[in-house]
Design a protein around this nucleic acid. Structure first.
Lengths: 160, 160
DNA sequence: TGTGAAAGTAGCTACGG
DNA sequence: CCGTAGCTACTTTCACA
């Protein structure tokens, strides 16, 4: 409904498979969902045109890139006006070290996920680009020991 | 060094491009990095075999799946033994609503990123699967208003 | 919608330079 | 690393059911 298109269970299955492995061929997906390759191809094209399928991204081993440390920076802001917050998020994701930035409710206002070489660089990043900002009232740093991910989102169907 | 292979700047460029768009053809990548397609093909194969390139995942619009709400659950654990923590993380990512789980230092021990239909489901998820666990001492819930991501990791080169 | 066949491309491997 | 060649397989389209 949000984009004028309702997904059926076959679409859900296609999306689930592509989230797990975007390099699956149409033929493999067709075999998995029980349709002909041409049908699956048409569905995938429609999902792309509808904006449901937004693209695909390769996953790379962080260690191979020299990333020795990832952390979450939990940040409190003094001003909560739209301009201040938007600007803060924009600037955060513009930094190459930033993987993600979340505007959230609760004890903090923004949570920033960063990937750096070592603790030295983490310190420099925090001091140079976050602590020094006027809107920032405080930062707590949580170093990530371990991260586990699930690449497929859950599906909540509107109608059975 | 970690895997016996050093990446040069061309490898970095290839990885950066594939992180932004995993569906680029070898020909397109070759044109972008200034090498012949056969050379780029060989490099990609080596990067895959070395475990640097780990696969690709499609990105899907959460709204199209009925996901109306995402949140970060910030969780404190009473016991910090390996078994307790590993089990907790295992069980967390086994839930379909969980996108990621991070074991961290700082005020909390685990931060769990969840995607749910609405606040009702968020409450049920928190109470049924997290608050009720004996190892959990407390949970703070931060609803995500906005999320911004950068799909390409930074590169920290060992030698210039 | 879903299907099957036809046409166009890309991926993959190997070899010579 | 480049380019070619040759094979395979996939993608894409389309007319039809």
């Amino acid at each position: 409904m949000s984009l004028g298109t309702a997904l059926d269970r076959t679409d859900d299955a296609i999306l689930r498979l592509l989230q797990k492995d975007a390099r699956l061929s149409v033929k493999e997906i067709a075999a998995a969902v029980g349709l002909a390759p041409s049908s699956v191809h048409g569905r995938i094209r429609q999902l792309r045109e509808a904006g449901v399928l937004r693209g695909a991204h390769a996953e790379v081993d962080p260690r191979a890139l020299g990333i020795g440390l990832e952390a979450l920076l939990m940040i409190g802001l003094s001003k909560h006006e739209r301009d201040t917050v938007d600007r803060f998020l924009d600037d955060a994701v513009a930094l190459p070290e930033v993987r993600a930035a979340f505007l959230v409710t609760g004890r903090y206002d923004v949570i920033v996920h960063v990937a750096v070489r070592d603790t030295q660089q983490l310190k420099d990043l925090a001091l140079d680009h976050f602590t020094s900002r006027p809107a920032v009232t405080r930062i707590e740093t949580s170093i990530i020991f371990e991260a586990r991910r699930r690449h497929a989102l859950p599906v909540y169907r509107a109608a059975g």
